[in-house]
Design a protein around this nucleic acid. Sequence first.
DNA 1: TTATTTAATTAAACACTGGTCAATAAAAGG
DNA 2: CCTTTTATTGACCAGTGTTTAATTAAATAA
Lengths: 189, 189
Amino acid sequence: MSPRKAVKQELTKEMIMVAARELFLKKGYQQVSIRQVASELGYSHGSIYYHFKNKAELFYAIIESDFKLLDQWLDDVMNQKMDNQGKLKEVLLAYIRFGMTHKSQYEMMFLLSDDEVKNYVNKGPNESYEKFAKAIILLSNKKISIQQTWSIFLSLHGFVSHYCRCDDTFVEVGNLAESHVNFILKSLG
Amino acid sequence: MSPRKAVKQELTKEMIMVAARELFLKKGYQQVSIRQVASELGYSHGSIYYHFKNKAELFYAIIESDFKLLDQWLDDVMNQKMDNQGKLKEVLLAYIRFGMTHKSQYEMMFLLSDDEVKNYVNKGPNESYEKFAKAIILLSNKKISIQQTWSIFLSLHGFVSHYCRCDDTFVEVGNLAESHVNFILKSLG
DNA sequence: TTATTTAATTAAACACTGGTCAATAAAAGG
DNA sequence: CCTTTTATTGACCAGTGTTTAATTAAATAA
């Protein structure tokens, strides 16, 4: 019964998140266990539960900032020097690019239907969508309805959620992404 | 160590599938265990493995016919007496309606990224998509590219995969579905 | 300094999961 | 009646998320 470690390295939330993030990005939420995370750090798995209530809370802590990152990606496009039509296209492309380059995160942010996970991921998707919708409305030269922004979002979501399942990278499906974005934009006339 | 049951009721693939289907439709693939299915039938969980190689095979057996069912739904629409434009709209709506009324099935058919599941669900989605794409091309009065049919599919898939996660029924989101379909069709000019 | 409280860690335990397998007995065939 | 096939069982394996009593290092109080 060896009790706690020497103080030279006490376990912290940050240490846990760093180790968990690495596994998480590589394998996804379901494929990573609390025990794997703990063993990666050389601690007993029970200790994780001192710092995080459960698995969902730990992994949500990791992706929490990714909603802001997605917002940031959109802001970056909005701040480019470009005509609105070009920006509009770039915003949609950025959404896809974000999803394809953050597959594990996207899965947790928008895809998982696990009840425990959904308890944590609630405001995130809504707020990110709101920001996305506002940007779309701002950039469109024609009047655009809420239903339309929602359809745009769902259409992009369809692309990402499909290609999240396979091993394709964004580079590989870049052309498809662009043609999909063009398809969506045609609806706005 | 009680060995096998009396012959009055020997376990069959059908019995297992009936019990499994019931649980599956209620809770989804991940939330149903082989042991739950066995206990529902009053048999030991080991016996399931005599009839099915593993969990994925059992649940795929349940789903297998649903690809044909989806095809059937599309055929039914195609056989209606209606102008092509109306049919086109109905085909897209039918896809969403199918997804929303077969959530558990849709999840296994198009959403799960579990490796074991993907070994079984491989041709299904492709063939169903091919049939869908052919129908779209046939119904459209304008020339329509493969990329366009693919984008239509992804956009519908986005709708279904989003609303699969929540408890909304098709009736509740019917209006949204229709407006989404209209949005998609506008792209075809 | 010593005693006491607090915080952090551990291992064991619980109740599950998918999956395998030797033992067993019912049924079928000769 | 004997043998073979077939179907069922339950023990077992390795793993999961989660809880908890015991323990002890560190911080604080006396």
